[in-house]
Design a binder for these strands. Structure first.
Lengths: 200, 200
DNA sequence: GCCAGTATGGCACTGAGTGTCAAACACTGC
DNA sequence: GCAGTGTTTGACACTCAGTGCCATACTGGC
């Protein structure tokens, strides 16, 4: 989940090493003693760097989590961009979200733990929702490009993305609520079918 | 906007007086020198109280804004609860949001300034979105009660509320984007018509 | 006028986040 | 191998957010 392809230079690989060490230390501390109870000093110490260095890699404690989600979001956006041109927006969005669902169902316990942490820690949830808000704008721009609409004068792409994200989030929340016992794909399908009731 | 009905006891009225003084001082400072640039010491000093007292009225700088929005949300939720039993969900939600739109169009400059502050200040936007998330759950519970559905086992009320809120937010964002030059009611109607496309 | 409850201010403390600077390190051409 | 350049790091100092604690002042009822 944290891994990425090897960069060219040694300096960058070293930098990535420190970043990963901080991520791992942070996630471990969050899981072990809670998010709010973990101080940045503890994370830095566990990763073997100074507090000041932590801030050279992450803007805040929250960003350790949020940044990794942004990577996934980026991935989904790229997937949407790669969907066939003629595909209806709702279908393209559903397919793109499929990637997200795959990462959820591939590591169910980890995903559930992360989602619980995200949704029950106020500071974290706020930052997460903010990130989703920005993502919604990015997705809408991509959808507007796909359909050839002017994103500025037309609300339709924003609405389509907003509705799709709502459907996904409600389905995911339900999946988290039942501790992953229901099938996430089926839940999302049901939610999409409901919000996109009649084809458009 | 800040006003509320006179409480019985004198102590409560006095308390409200301090709270209002802090609100006014904060809003003035935010407008005058920006949210991030305003310290809590400045707000407290401007309101004539100590920093410690500020925290006895608001949990944070953000909460000065967020708390007032929560009051409005509460109002809308009550309106939804009061809509006729037989009214379809989408219509009831649209009518309830009408109250919100009224407060926007009644004080357009103030609302636009507040919305801009809210959407351009990261910390504030995150807190706002978090509040909206909680509100969505409250509205869904109310809608479930109205329609006699079990909120836990049925995603439909959550989805209906989510879709309505998305429609409203996209319309409002567009209204803010065009600096209030378009009619907010018309924008929201258009958004609702699109997301609830076919009757269900 | 006494007593209980509450509001306030002052103080001290922890923790987040930032600017600055000097030392350590790696990478280049010579 | 060596000097020069650019980057990473740790250390220190500082501001500000947020909280606990306690002494004081004010308000109510009796």
């Amino acid at each position: 989940m944290v891994e990425r392809m090897e960069p060219a230079t040694l300096a960058e690989r070293k930098r990535q090493l420190v970043r990963d060490a901080l991520s791992v230390a942070a996630l471990h501390a969050f899981a072990f003693q809670g998010f709010d109870e973990t101080t940045i000093d503890q994370i830095a110490a566990a990763a073997g760097v100074s507090r000041r260095t932590f801030f050279r890699y992450f803007r805040s404690k929250e960003d350790v989590i949020i940044d990794s989600l942004s990577d996934v979001n980026q991935h989904i956006t790229a997937e949407l961009a790669g969907r066939p041109e003629g595909e209806p927006p709702a279908v393209a969005l559903r397919r793109a979200f499929g990637l997200l669902i795959d990462t959820f169902t591939e590591y169910p316990e980890k995903s559930l733990a992360l989602a619980n942490l995200l949704l029950t820690t106020p500071a974290l949830r706020a930052r997460y929702l903010d990130r989703q808000y920005e993502w919604r704008i990015e997705l809408a721009a991509e959808l507007a490009r796909r359909t050839g609409l002017d994103d500025d004068t037309d609300l339709r792409s924003s609405l389509l993305v907003g509705v799709a994200l709502t459907a996904f989030e409600v389905a995911r929340d339900e999946w988290v609520r039942c501790a992953g016992r229901e099938d996430l794909n089926a839940l999302v399908d049901k939610a999409f079918a409901f919000v996109y009731g009649a084809p458009r």
